[in-house]
């Protein structure tokens, strides 16, 4: 296989993107059992924060003109802020509601954010150029790989390592894991609910922002719909990984990325437009074999 290395880099970078998006969803689900349908809209919001608000067809860079050293932290903070703001505005009032009501309210919130973006920026996709030099290919192990793919893979590893460090070694991380295990019990033992939940939302929003930066560089377009597809994949990754399990979300993100690259490479040509249909069918089949997901957290088993 001459292009094995090529496939590997494609799969790893796509999987890394999915894994980061899935982590953002799994973090919030772990802490407050909320399936956050607004996550894709956080991503779109961060992409649009790069350009000047207008409904013109040509995009004018706004924040996107800042140097990378400033831009990256700024977008991460913006992502964190929109997530925390949505928690204050909506989810805080639904703490005691059942998961279904929270899920639908996040769906509604996502719908609101999406339409605000549509109204401010117009419905047509816009070309943006963010760090175009990152798409120049470099030679690694006989494959020509865009520099960005390497960066995505490294970023994912970095993010996962940092998150693991945060969760295992810091007080906030300890409290988050305790909250994910059993929220009521954690609160009784002195875990500050607001801190933990706000922290989870901020982290999740920052992850969405990272995904947004990567997607904007990779595709070179800003489109209101761009968050939707990746959010769906991220959901599926969290479910396959086992709802509430962070390592599961990462593993399943990589798994889905890998399978989708393989399908793209080996499906017969006339079946390729249907790749996503095959992918989701495999997902449903996978869920049938392991309904609880690949990694089942202890908290997932209902108690009577």
């Amino acid at each position: 296989m001459t292009n094995f290395a090529q496939l590997f880099f494609d799969a790893a970078s796509l999987g890394g993107l999915y894994a980061m998006a899935a982590l953002g969803i799994a973090l919030i689900f772990g802490v407050m059992n909320l399936v956050n349908f607004a996550h894709g809209e956080y991503i779109a919001f961060c992409v649009f924060a790069l350009i000047v608000p207008s409904t013109d067809a040509v995009a004018v860079m706004f924040l996107g003109r800042a140097p990378a050293v400033l831009l990256v932290p700024l977008i991460l903070v913006i992502g964190g802020m929109i997530a925390v703001a949505s928690e204050y505005a909506v989810f805080r009032h639904l703490r005691n509601a059942d998961p279904v009501a929270m899920m639908i309210s996040s769906f509604a919130l996502g719908f609101v954010i999406r339409n605000v973006l549509l109204a401010t920026y117009g419905g047509r996709p816009k070309a943006i150029s963010l760090w175009p030099e990152l798409n120049t290919p470099v030679q690694i192990a006989g494959a020509s790989v865009p520099l960005l793919q390497v960066i995505v893979i490294l970023t994912t590893l970095l993010v996962v390592a940092a998150l693991a460090f945060l969760l295992k070694k810091t007080r906030l991380g300890l409290e988050m894991r305790a909250a994910a295990e059993n929220f009521t019990m954690a609160r009784l033992l002195g875990v500050r609910a607001n801190v933990v939940i706000t922290g989870a939302f901020a982290l999740s929003g920052a992850l969405a922002a990272a995904v947004a930066l990567i997607m904007a560089t990779q595709t070179g377009v800003a489109d209101v719909r761009m968050g939707g597809q990746i959010m769906l994949v991220a959901f599926i990754a969290t479910v396959i990984g086992g709802l509430g399990s962070l390592p599961g979300a990462v593993a399943a993100g990589f798994l889905i990325g890998g399978v989708s690259v393989l399908l793209q490479a080996f499906l017969p040509l006339e079946a390729r437009p249907f790749r996503d249909a095959f992918l989701y069918t495999l997902v449903i089949a996978c869920l049938l074999l392991r309904p609880q997901g690949l990694f089942v957290p202890a908290s997932a088993k209902p108690r009577v």
Partner: peptide
């Protein structure tokens, strides 16, 4: 027959996957 073997929230997300399957197929066939 497939989706309803899952529990509540997982089933909801599987219905989402179903919607995406139908949309992909009908947008490309």
């Amino acid at each position: 027959a497939a989706i309803l073997r899952l529990s509540g929230i997982a089933a909801s997300i599987a219905t989402f996957a179903f919607l995406a399957i139908i949309n992909t197929v009908y947008s490309n066939w």
